[in-house]
Design a protein around this nucleic acid. Structure first.
Lengths: 339, 339
DNA sequence: CTGAAAGCGCTTACAG
DNA sequence: CTGAAAGCGCTTACAG
């Protein structure tokens, strides 16, 4: 592997000159610049990333911490990855993917060994053991998900309260007075998936405010039973004219459930889900939904993170942000005036 | 941030002694070992990964190259990631996630800058521009997917030919004589997704061999039309008693299509898919399927890759492998004797 | 406009 | 059993 010394020798200049030629940090004569470029070309020289990191204390790598659970397929995760990865590259950073079960330990490891200039935490729970680790670290971090303690970190998330209100409001305006909300399985909530109850609680409050009856339920522990759960809910609440889904698997199962019951959306039942447009597209979901915009959240998190990394002292004094993205309803025609 | 020099000072030993104490590469007195441990503890010392990489020429990082396409949701991708990431960590490696659209350039970049000790290529197409880049590199690589040219790389993939034969054989044994196979959209094939026709061609040959009529079709370019495509196929081939799916979206859409037609599996139609068990579980797919085992393939690829990285000279002489994993049919009861 | 030199934080022969 | 020193491949003040 060619080193900067090899390039210098071939070009007949010093190593520092090669370095400056590559970084453009000082002006060089046409002649020297040309000789260096030729030598680089000839030797196929690429700077060694490790050596550069050691000299500059900058790795140009971002850590991406994802939490996986055996009982989750996490279909939105991929979109987060893409949003983070693409944005990072556009800003000159690579992404180190950390998916260890023990998130706090993994975070501590990559941070203290200086493998990364900053981190993005995905799937942040309300009480998330990774957050205090990050708060102690010298590198900045951006979170996707809303923890109880947001000090010293930048936070991005969908405004799930607003999403809950939006879903209820939308159907109330169409004349519906009795709704059912099916959320993720309860174990998602138990491990700190605060977004589930943030949406649910807000939907409940909005329902009360508007005089709408709202029945709420969690998805079954095993997604295989989700069709049955939907059947049970519709059986239990025959007066309900609207179904709200905060559960991707329920969305994919719903067409056959409705078909089995001889129901059609929106004629017999109005339906609103909450998932990403990529998810809707891939699984051909014919329902209106609140867009959860995972790619956008990933992008926002990385932008803010890189800004903090590169602004150095200036950024350190800038206040940290908590940005809750307003949900947008993508109307696919699965809701209509109450029959 | 504490350095090895700080630890040495606090422990009252030399920096090399600290290094040896940490690596265990030479025996030290109880006393010294204890003092070093105490100093490390007291200072919260973690070795700087970049400095270590520079000194050892080993980054302990693996590159993971994934190709994403706008028209794909790639539900299996996540399982590959998990298989790769978990196995890598278990073997002491971190994973750099590379998802740039220009795969060959990205590969060249991380390889020549020595950011990684080796790479795993996902989604390898038959003619894959990343493969020649890898073949020129000094680091080893493992592929998931079967390229035309396998020289100098280790290759892992599901045996899609065998999968195609297995699906046909299974239904033929149950007395079925006319089948329909719905594959991925054609654009997946066009960009080199050889696995699509590897399965399809083998299924065709097996059908001919067994005297079974096999109708084949690609999924629609837009997955949103997949339900309609299934309807069309069933309309066009009323005599078909078995449906084979090499298309995840078709699997999730099928329940409502069957329901709409008043059909039931396996009473009216036998169904066999090809996807991962995680996919089947999350989307509650009630059909028998050939397990595509993405996590297992990821694991195998990483194991082989790490073996090559760490065996050094010994591994270089070892022949490269092309391992096609035999498919396994997970019987969920969606097939039965021909009515 | 260019170069010699120090330094980033490790590891590992070499020496005792 | 332990230490002084060289070296990994860069960058960047410092000097001219």
């Amino acid at each position: 592997m060619a080193t900067i010394g090899d390039v210098a020798r071939v070009a007949g200049v010093s190593r520092s000159t090669v370095s400056y030629a590559l970084s453009g940090k000082r002006s060089l004569s046409e002649d020297v610049r040309g000789r260096v470029a030729a030598a680089v070309e000839q030797l196929g020289y690429t700077p060694n990333a490790g050596a550069r990191a050691l000299a500059t204390s900058q790795t140009k790598v971002l850590g991406l911490l994802a939490q996986f659970y055996d009982d989750e397929f996490a279909p939105a995760m991929m979109q987060y990855f893409l949003g983070v990865s693409n944005t990072a590259r556009a800003l000159g950073y690579d992404v180190l993917l950390i998916s260890e079960p023990d998130g706090p330990a993994a975070l501590e490891r990559v941070l203290s060994s200086r493998m990364v200039d900053g981190v993005v935490l995905l799937n942040v729970a309300e009480q998330d053991a990774r957050v205090p680790v990050l708060q102690q670290a010298s590198q900045p971090g951006a979170l996707v998900g809303l923890p109880a303690d947001c000090r010293g970190v930048d936070v991005f998330d969908l405004d799930f309260e607003e999403a809950g209100r939006l879903m209820v409001e939308h159907l109330h305006r169409l004349g519906h007075r009795e709704l059912v909300l099916l959320s993720q399985p309860e174990h998602v909530v138990e491990r700190g998936g605060a977004y589930v109850w943030r949406l649910q609680d807000a939907a409940r409050e909005e329902a009360v405010r508007r005089g709408v009856v709202l029945h709420t339920a969690y998805g079954p522990p095993d997604q295989a039973d989700v069709s049955q759960r939907i059947h049970e809910l519709l059986d239990a609440h025959p007066g309900a004219t609207g179904l709200l889904l905060n559960n991707e698997a329920a969305g994919t199962a719903l067409p056959s459930v409705l078909s089995a019951r001889g129901l059609r959306a929106p004629d017999d039942l109005s339906v609103v889900g909450r998932w990403s447009s990529q998810f809707a597209q891939y699984f051909c979901l014919p329902y209106s939904f609140v867009e959860s915009a995972p790619d956008r959240l990933g992008r926002m998190a990385v932008r803010q993170l890189v800004k903090r990394i590169e602004n150095g002292a200036a950024a350190a004094s800038e206040p940290h942000v908590v940005r809750l993205v307003s949900p947008v309803l993508d109307d696919r025609g699965s809701t209509s005036r109450r029959p």
